[in-house]
């Protein structure tokens, strides 16, 4: 087993992702609070159970509330504002999560072709999830 090389001081991938993890974490919490406040604003108090409200909070997609007792979904719940919110949640959430997987995996790896392989795999997983989620958003 070879030793791990110490990360150099300066601007590199690990530093950038360290900053990004903090920023995206705060952003996700702010987006979640926006989703929850918006749901109450649109009448979730009398139209939703708490599980549906939580699903809407973390991903404000009309499919998440389709089983609730909402008379007209189109004006308040399904429009461009919430689509942009969903895309922001998808971007920050998927990137934060995939970077988290990378950090966990690289704790068990040394710097070798094996690490490059995992980074490539996680990059393609990231791309795949982004495309999938944006497809779901635009088609719903």
């Amino acid at each position: 087993m070879s030793t791990r090389t110490v990360v150099q001081v300066g601007f590199n991938l690990d530093f950038a992702m360290w900053i990004f993890t903090r920023i995206s974490g705060i952003t996700l919490i702010v987006l979640a609070i926006t989703g929850m406040v918006g749901a109450f604003w649109l009448g979730a108090r009398i139209q939703m159970d708490v599980a549906t409200l939580m699903r809407w909070t973390f991903f404000p997609n009309p499919n998440h509330v389709i089983n609730s007792d909402i008379p007209d979904l189109i004006p308040g719940w399904a429009n461009a504002y919430w689509q942009i919110m969903q895309m922001m949640i998808v971007f920050f959430g998927v990137t934060h999560g995939m970077n988290g997987l990378r950090v966990v995996i690289e704790d068990y790896l040394t710097e070798s072709w094996w690490r490059t392989f995992w980074r490539g795999l996680i990059f393609f997983l990231w791309l795949f999830m982004m495309i999938l989620a944006v497809y779901v958003i635009l088609a719903s």
Partner: peptide
């Protein structure tokens, strides 16, 4: 974190 990535990823899929 791993649970969220796995289960919510599967839910999106």
């Amino acid at each position: 974190g791993i649970s969220i990535a796995v289960f919510i990823g599967l839910h999106v899929f």
